[in-house]
């Protein structure tokens, strides 16, 4: 697991991987959304609004996936003290929050023509909004810790504690009566017709690749900042020595 612990080695792989991930992610996701807009027939009940499926579901998946990544990285940081884990967790926070916000916005836009309302306080929608606020808290906490050069351990604990919300979001439509429908895809079974399912799976794959590319980009930015700061500090110390 410590194979990637060496930042130079990680950077070499990340540099090689960033552009392919971003490009293939953009092509696949935008292509699948265009496919959904033009080639897919309307749903028997919802009509054309079913096309929102292809942006809403990947956004929801990545909003929850982002926090799962933060939780796993936090665990690796706390237990194995993996040096890159804290950086990975911090890099996943902003894209995760962005996709959670997109999920809420597209869901709201979808709710108006189908349910007849922009927003309701049911279990699914409320727990997803809680996730967005958890992201805001995490971003504020981890960036202030990083700015003051303090250990990111508190942010890691927050990342782990906040993960309790993920199964709650997932189960909210099963545990409680909610306006949001129950899951369509469960353990290899799907109640989504193949004409909708295929573009949905490709869009989800595409947005996931894109997410990976963005996380790598942000990790490289954080690493570069840290290296620049360390070097400047070292130089300042050397300069002091020379003066003395």
């Amino acid at each position: 697991m410590h194979g990637f612990a060496n930042p130079a080695r990680f950077l070499r792989i990340a540099k090689w991987l960033t552009a392919p991930l971003l490009v293939s992610g953009l092509l696949l996701s935008f292509g699948a959304v265009a496919w959904g807009l033009t080639q897919v027939p309307p749903d028997r009940l919802m009509g054309d609004t079913v096309r929102i499926l292809f942006v809403h579901v990947p956004a929801a998946w990545l909003g929850m996936g982002g926090w799962s990544a933060i939780a796993i990285a936090s665990l690796m940081e706390l237990v194995w003290r993996h040096p890159l884990a804290a950086i990975a967790a911090r890099a996943a926070a902003v894209p995760g929050a962005a996709f959670t916000a997109l999920c809420l916005i597209t869901g709201s836009i979808w709710g108006r023509p189908t349910w007849g309302t922009w927003w309701v306080w049911d279990g699914r929608l409320t727990s997803m909004l809680v996730l967005l606020f958890l992201y805001f808290g995490y971003i504020a906490l981890s960036s202030s810790l990083a700015r003051e050069g303090q250990s990111s351990r508190i942010a890691a604990i927050f990342g782990l504690v906040g993960a309790i919300n993920i199964p709650i979001i997932n189960r909210s439509v099963v545990w409680w009566n909610s306006l949001h429908q129950p899951p369509s895809i469960t353990m290899g079974e799907s109640s989504i017709d193949p004409v909708f399912l295929w573009p949905l799976l490709i869009a989800t794959l595409g947005f996931s690749l894109l997410f990976g590319g963005v996380v790598l980009t942000r990790m490289r930015a954080i690493l570069a900042d840290m290296q620049a700061e360390a070097r400047l500090r070292r130089k300042a110390l050397q300069a002091e020595d020379i003066v003395r």
């Binding site: 028997r44 079913v50 309701v120 429908q181």
Partner: peptide
Amino acid sequence: NLLAKHDENYMPRELE
């Protein structure tokens, strides 16, 4: 006030 609840099935019209 009335809200419509959608079910978990997605199906095109012609296959209904």
